[in-house]
Design a protein around this nucleic acid. Structure first.
Lengths: 213, 213
DNA sequence: GTCTATATTTCGATAGAC
DNA sequence: GTCTATCGAAATATAGAC
């Protein structure tokens, strides 16, 4: 199952991870103090440091938890039979809806990737981040292989796969930055937004029109 | 000219802004210390605090400088005659190429918008950020009006303009996260990437195909 | 397993010399 | 206009009580 690592052993650890995810999303990694996370838990940082050796490890835990979850979500569609273009549509819909349902975790994963792209930091943190981003890359490779196959089958059209995967993910992930859950009318709302976003990207992948300048 | 405010009065201030932009891009706002910026300048923070009352104001200065620049870049195409779809193509190409050429400033603007979406912070910082994001929104409205007009002219197809503008900008801005300038072969590289990205989005806007499920 | 200190470092900001 | 020196406020992490 793509190496889900079952980070969350007990419910106490899970509670810490979710509180940390909330804080990291609201203020970002650097601006979030361990005291902030403890305060959200109604506890003190002693509790957190008992479960995680450092703030960086806490962040890594949230990242991994987030990746584990989304891997479970797209698993049913990974090896779906039929045209790759149709498989892509199912994967993209599941991915985009999950971005909104688990917006908090998705934002943390995003910041982890961003931190990695920035480079810098200490060698130790670098090693941890490298592992996390490798996990995230194995996920994005599922989509990459699917769109390349759909191109071979004549349904998708694009030049560079790397550029296309990046453009695709940015558009599919967009809702994590502006979507605000509204109590009550959530599920239909999520369905409608996901359909529009995936349609937009689907057209970008299937279209053949060239720019007229 | 969309209210460019001429932040950069003297060359000493400009030098500080560019050094700050580099630092903010490399490590993010919170993780960047004023000492970091000073060190990059080969100076001490006394120099920075003489020109900017606070770190937040320094960030605001970089943001505003970045917005001023990109407004100048798209200005020639804003009121171009002819079909809105063609005007959009010129605007999008100019925008995307600038994202790569001025990647540093673009990333700072991005983080400013992200910080604003997070909410939180002190009321004073909130006020400054509100102003900056208003500036940024007036920029994004140019694109919004253009795609809505292109839809009225029958060239673009989409449902919700807000969702579409968000998806569009995310895809057009994607290069600021992965594009790495390579010395020598830069300009042709930028042209090729921008053409591919804008073609992808163009197809997303012009396409009429529906998802088959 | 969680809490109460506390040691240590870093950072934003200011005051005053030059 | 820039630098040196320093204050005071966080924040990471640890030690030891309970």
């Amino acid at each position: 199952m793509l190496g889900a690592r079952e980070v969350v052993s007990d419910s106490s650890t899970a509670e810490i991870l979710l509180a940390a995810a909330d804080c990291f999303m609201e203020r970002g990694y650097t601006a979030t103090s361990v005291d902030d996370v403890a305060r959200r838990l109604g506890a003190t940082k002693g509790r957190i440091y008992h479960h995680f050796p450092s703030k960086a490890d806490l962040f890594a835990g949230v990242f991994e938890y987030g990746m584990d979850l989304i891997c479970v979500v797209i698993e049913p569609y990974r090896n779906m039979p039929g045209p790759a273009a149709e498989r892509w549509t199912q994967l993209a819909l599941a991915h985009t809806k999950h971005m909104m349902r688990a917006k908090t975790l998705a934002r943390v994963v995003w910041e982890g990737v961003e931190m990695h792209l920035r480079g810098a930091r200490t060698p130790e943190q670098r090693l941890v981040l490298d592992g996390l981003v490798k996990y995230r890359n194995s996920y994005s490779n599922i989509f990459r292989e699917t769109i390349v196959q759909a191109r071979e089958e004549g349904d998708f059209h694009f030049e560079d796969p790397a550029i296309t995967v990046q453009s695709m993910f940015m558009a599919l992930n967009a809702p994590i930055f502006w979507y605000v859950p509204r109590p009550g009318e959530d599920e239909e709302n999520i369905e409608s937004i996901a359909r529009q976003v995936v349609t937009f990207v689907y057209r970008g992948l299937t279209g053949k029109g060239e720019l007229d300048l």
